[in-house]
Design a binder for these strands. Structure first.
Lengths: 184, 184
DNA sequence: TTGATCGCTTACTACTGAGTCAGTATATTT
DNA sequence: AAATATACTGACTCAGTAGTAAGCGATCAA
């Protein structure tokens, strides 16, 4: 029983990560929800407004994720993070970061800033979680925590993209490769 | 002094990897080239035809690349491969694989098959080059050559995407991380 | 030298895109 | 009970989209 605005956000996010920003229209949202085009414009006057909401939605989701795993052991946190991407892959979608990066030059400066904030938050969380795991001995790092964080992030978000082309086996292989690298 | 058709292909490729498939139009191609919209349609009747040409263009480019580095030492080949991505990053573009993956569900089956062929060619080249380097001792592998190939590919193509958001320093860090991992 | 083919231009069509605005039923507040 | 805000609908606008068809000059082959 979520509000129309929330339903729009969820659907827009699915479309964004399913077909890409420029491949979906306001009627792709209004039709399935049984509302009129203008109703979408009522909540989100312009498409950039909608895009910003998608970023905010993911920022919130990620904050809730970090709160949920807070207190868990570092390697376990990383596994939860990777499993989250498994669910993205299974649903045939891709990671927001990749979706926005591809259409980057079609985005307004405000969206770009929002995305920069979100992406840095993810990188910072990954970095500090890797450090945490190195301290308690559960995680092995061969490079700086920051470099490894970037490596893991690019591996897993690109895996959702690559597996669209070459199949889900490749996603599984990449995920396993990450785990192999950071465990003893 | 290249033909109109070639100029269209090159420009379409730049647009595809610069703004995304659905963010550029036939007039984005015709205007800069000083030709009419219909001239583009003459060479490429539909947009999917244009997309297929882009894939073919990259298939040819990659074949020429492998021929150029053929005979070189394996680690050197990998470095050339990574440097190729550095030039993509510097020009503000992203890798074709990521560009098509994002818009995957907006692509025809034929384009998808072409892209699958191209992507598998790249993965196979990477895999065999890594094996080659392991044999002669220049490359260190911690996992199977196939898994490492997928890991390297996703790292580097996602690095072109991520660096759009968080800056070129991250591209450099990811590239260095790959090199650190496979060298002694 | 005639005729066909190539590489375009001119001039459209049909449609879809984002976005607007006046109006309306349904609460909510005063 | 009246005024106001909320969440829409109906009915548009207008720019831009892919795509088409007819024509035309230059080149090339018979």
């Amino acid at each position: 029983m979520s509000s129309t605005k929330d339903q729009i956000t969820v659907l827009a996010d699915e479309l964004m990560r399913g077909k890409g920003y420029n491949a979906f229209s306001y009627s792709d949202i209004s039709k399935p929800l049984g509302i009129k085009n203008a109703a979408v414009h009522y909540h989100f006057p312009t498409k950039p407004d909608l895009a910003r909401e998608i970023v905010a939605y993911h920022s919130d989701s990620f904050t809730r994720f970090t709160e949920r795993v807070e207190g868990k052991e570092a390697l376990s946190k990383i596994k939860f993070f990777l499993n989250f991407y498994t669910s993205i892959q299974l649903s045939g979608r891709i990671c927001v970061i990749g979706a926005f990066a591809t259409d980057w030059n079609a985005m307004t400066e405000e969206i770009q800033q929002d995305m920069q904030g979100f992406t840095n938050t993810v990188i910072e969380w990954l970095t500090s979680t890797l450090k945490e795991g190195e301290s308690n001995g559960s995680i092995k790092l061969s490079d700086t925590a920051d470099s490894e964080a970037l490596s893991i992030l690019t591996n897993i978000f690109a895996a959702t993209q690559l597996s669209r082309i070459t199949g889900s086996d490749h996603f599984a292989a990449i995920k396993q490769n990450i785990l192999n690298r950071i465990t003893h």
